[in-house]
Structures are given as structure tokens and as C-alpha cells.
Design a binder for these strands. Structure first.
Ligand SMILES: NC(=O)c1ccc[n+]([C@@H]2O[C@H](COP(=O)([O-])OP(=O)(O)OC[C@H]3O[C@@H](n4cnc5c(N)ncnc54)[C@H](O)[C@@H]3O)[C@@H](O)[C@H]2O)c1
Ligand SMILES: NC(=O)c1ccc[n+]([C@@H]2O[C@H](COP(=O)([O-])OP(=O)(O)OC[C@H]3O[C@@H](n4cnc5c(N)ncnc54)[C@H](O)[C@@H]3O)[C@@H](O)[C@H]2O)c1
Lengths: 216, 216
DNA sequence: AAGCATATGTGAAATATTTCTCAAACTGTA
DNA sequence: TACAGTTTGAGAAATATTTCACATATGCTT
């Protein structure tokens, strides 16, 4: 076990393990193994064991892992043994869907502020939460010490909104805008762009096959 | 240049290059370099050159790359020199946002069918497109030879819906449901789960810093 | 035309990541 | 207690990916 300098690709898999483990708990499953978990996720058991070994010894030879215990450990590792407040920037279609999504609260995050620059959206409520004016972003985020934001505004405004929330103290950004953002080193960014996913799949979808495939 | 056996991580970056190049075209920029592109995307110029070198020689020494030409080449490589029809399964919040999203049509994809199992949703229109009953999925997808689907339904129904669309001939799935899907080898799957992204960032957000950071 | 600055494409080297293996540990059975 | 069947954790080996470094080519300036 080597506690420092964990590869970030390892970190990115832990939430996936956590998701699968939570599923097992829901099904009242008490124990699992790296083999079973790997099969459920389509990855090798060795990878799971190696990933976990960066943080400690969580399993028992011959038995496997206590599901609840492993969940507790993963939540601790990922700093999820607390609740994180999240701000949503942009109350359009995506901002709307995100704010109403129950799945965040279930897994450690609570959307507690939403902003829009469009005066006609300000004051409307989404899931009981009132949309606030974009001009108040800095004030509100600082007041509440909000460190995580999700960006759901058009690409052309994304960089300037990013500068604003970073100034307000945000250190983690999940952006739905299809553009690469410039941020200081201490700020983490992740992107969600469904189109890049589709485009990486069409590479494998040769048009030939397409023409050959006929409806029955 | 080695045309076969391209690492899939290389393929996953090409759409990101394409996105940045399209941005340049919008700004009337004619020429770019691996260095400039890399800076815009936060990756090394060597990586960009190496990635492209798998497919051919698209640049000119001393000059760089003609933006339009590189776009054409990347679109060809990714099979984007055609339009792909996409089906959306589930007309809830996310299905709604996806279906209304202009960003797909702009980049090679057209949502041409949307389904829901809830009778009260069937028949409603989203962006001019009528929601169809989930029972018709197989019939419609086969008829129209639709090969790509986006899954926007609750996790507990995701596997069975997947089985259905795969049976209907779908070969590429983009799933918003937070669960790992089981598919035959010839089917590609990508996942979008914002929570896993957030959870991989909180690892780097130590709670200590949080406590120290006070609003001004 | 020569010199300088710039930028590609690519082997080779350096790193990173995954997989292989197996000793050791645990469970259950008899 | 002995034995068979599992499964972990981790060093070593195998692969994969990224970065380095440079020969070579192009454009621009003088
Ligand atoms: N809809 C989708 O399925 C989808 C999918 C992937 C990515 N995206 C991306 O997500 C972003 C939002 O998409 P959408 O469909 O929700 O767009 P939308 O047009 O429905 O909503 C955008 C909202 O952002 C607000 N806004 C603009 N500038 C702002 C600012 N500076 N501060 C605060 N609010 C601001 C607008 O008033 C609007 O309400 C876009 O970048 C889009 O490309 C959307
Ligand atoms: N809303 C978000 O921001 C968000 C973000 C990430 C992931 N997700 C995930 O995306 C999925 C959809 O989320 P949502 O917020 O849109 O949920 P939602 O409840 O608003 O919509 C789900 C829709 O799917 C329909 N449905 C259920 N079973 C179906 C079936 N077999 N065939 C066709 N339609 C069916 C339901 O009738 C409903 O209309 C969920 O898995 C959710 O976890 C949502």
C-alpha cells in the first residue's frame, strides 16, 4: 500500500466501484469479491484489487469484501463522509434536469443554489429552489462557501462564468458546455459532452455494415 | 502511420480535437499548430501529433495544419461524413433536455425517435417529435435501421431496455443511467454519470482546506 | 540565396497502467 | 486436525501510453 501519488485513473474508478457496491447493498448483499465486482463492471479482478491496495487492506482472503465496510472506506477516501453543497450555473434544459435530479442528494451532493443571467428566469423555482441572478454568484458562493459548481450555460459564456465562480472560491467544476476551460492549478474540471461520446463510437460503426443491415 | 489497432484512448480524443477545430473555424481561423491546439485543450503538442500520425500526415512542417482540412479528415476518420439517426429512450427530464438539444444536429447526429413507457407521456411532443410507446421500440428502430440510442430511464429498467434496443439492432449506446450494462461484444457503450465525476473531484478537495477557507 | 524561426512526424526512451502469479490466509467440511 | 476450495495483496512482468528529441521541411526576412 502506497498512500501518496495515487494515479488519477485509479481515483476515477473508485466512484464506479462505489456505485456498484451501493447497488449490492440495496439487494441486501453482504459480501462480494473482486471477481464478482469485476464481472459486474466489465473490468478485471486484478485491477480492482490493485486499485484498492493503494489505500489499505479492505478484504479478507478466502472471503472477499464486506460490502458495507468497503462502502464506508471508499466514501472516506473520496471525502464523501460529509455532504457537499453544489451550485448550478444556468437554469436552461440541462440546469433544470440537474437541479431536479434526486441522484445527487443520494450520493453526497446537494444542489443548494442555481443562477441564471436571464431576468425572466430569475425568481422562478425549480424543485423548490429559487433561481438567483447571475450577478449574485460571487456574493452567494462566498457567503455559503460553496466549492463545487456545475456549469450548464452556452459555450460562449462558459469561460467568463468560470472565471467568476473561481473568483468566488469554487475548486471543482463539472461543465456541460462543449469547450475546454482555462482554470488555475488548484481548480479541478471535468467535462460532460455526450456528442464526443457518440463520435468516439461512430468510429467503430462502419457504414458498410450499416448498408448491409436490413430490417427483418 | 499504422492504420490498424488504433488505441481507443486515441479515438476518444479525436472528437475533442474536432470540437476545438470547429471553434477555430467559427472564429475564421485558417491555420493552427499542434502546439496551439494543445494549449487550448491542456494537452501536449506531441500527443496531438502522435495521435494524428496514426491516420496519416495532415500537417505541413513550418506551418501547421489547415483547420478546415483537418476537420474534414477527422470527420472522415470518425465516420461523421454522414448523418446518424439517434433514438432517445425515456422522455423524462434528461430525455427532454437531450431531445431539445441543438448540439447534436450540429455535430452529426439527429434525434429522430423518442420513446417512453408511461402512457401519459406517449403522444406528447418534444421539439416537434412525438413520444412513442416503449412497446414500439423494436418495430421502429428496425424499420428505420437506427443504430445509436441514448438511454435516459431509471437504472432499474436500463438493462431490460438495453436488451430490447440491442435486439432491435442498436450498436452504440450512450447511457445516462448509473449502472453498468451488459451487452454483446459488437455493441459499444459509453456512460454519463455526473455523480462519478463529482466524486472523483472531491478526492482532491480536502475538508481541511474547506474549513480554513472563509468568505471575505 | 542564406539564415532564422517554426513546426511536423516519428523512432526511442521514459512513464504509466494493467495483468500475471503465487504465497499466504480464511472458510467450510469431515 | 487435515484437506480442498477461495480469495486477497503485491512483486514482477507485460503492455500501453506519453514524452523526448531531432532530422527534415516550410515560410519569412533580409
Ligand atoms: N441540453 C442538453 O442535452 C445538453 C447536453 C450536453 C451539453 N449541453 C450543453 O449544456 C449547456 C446548457 O445547455 P441547455 O440545453 O441547458 O441550454 P439552454 O439554452 O436551455 O440554457 C442555458 C441557460 O443558461 C443561461 N445563461 C447564459 N449565460 C449565463 C451566465 N453567464 N450565467 C448564468 N446563466 C446563463 C441562459 O439564460 C439559459 O437559461 C450548453 O453549453 C450546451 O451545449 C446541453
Ligand atoms: N436528471 C439528471 O440530471 C440526470 C443526470 C444524470 C443521470 N440521470 C439518469 O438518467 C436517467 C433518467 O433521469 P431523469 O431525471 O430524466 O428521470 P425521469 O424520472 O425524469 O425520467 C425517466 C423516464 O423514463 C421513462 N421510462 C421508464 N422506464 C422506461 C422504459 N422501459 N422505456 C421507456 N421509458 C421508460 C419514465 O416513464 C420517465 O418518463 C436516470 O437513470 C437517472 O439516474 C439523470
Amino acid at each position: 500500500m502506497s498512500v501518496d501519488n495515487i494515479p488519477k485513473i485509479v481515483i476515477s474508478r473508485l466512484p464506479v466501484y462505489l456505485r456498484a457496491l451501493n447497488r449490492m447493498v440495496q439487494n441486501s448483499q453482504l459480501v462480494t469479491s473482486s471477481h464478482e465486482l469485476g464481472k459486474a463492471l466489465g473490468i478485471s479482478s486484478a485491477q480492482i484489487r490493485k486499485d484498492l491496495s493503494h489505500f489499505g487492506e479492505f478484504g479478507k482472503q478466502g472471503t472477499g469484501y464486506q460490502v458495507e465496510f468497503l462502502i464506508t472506506q471508499l466514501r472516506q477516501i473520496l471525502n464523501l463522509d460529509r455532504e457537499w453543497e453544489v451550485a448550478v450555473i444556468g437554469s436552461g434544459d440541462i440546469g433544470h434536469a440537474i437541479t431536479r435530479y434526486q441522484g445527487f442528494a443520494d450520493r453526497g451532493f446537494r444542489v443548494t443554489a442555481i443562477f441564471d443571467s436571464d431576468p425572466s428566469k430569475v425568481g422562478t423555482k425549480i424543485n423548490g429552489l429559487e433561481v438567483q441572478p447571475a450577478d449574485d454568484i460571487i456574493k452567494v458562493l462566498r457567503e455559503r462557501n460553496i466549492q463545487i459548481a456545475m456549469l450548464a450555460i452556452p459555450a460562449e459564456y462558459a469561460q467568463s462564468a468560470t472565471d467568476t465562480i473561481v473568483e468566488a472560491g469554487v475548486r471543482a467544476i463539472l461543465s456541460y458546455a462543449p469547450i475546454s476551460l482555462n482554470v488555475p492549478d488548484h481548480v479541478k474540471v471535468r467535462y460532460i459532452d455526450p456528442v464526443t461520446h457518440l463520435q468516439s463510437m461512430t468510429f467503430y460503426l462502419s457504414t458498410e455494415d450499416d448498408l448491409l443491415t436490413q430490417p427483418l
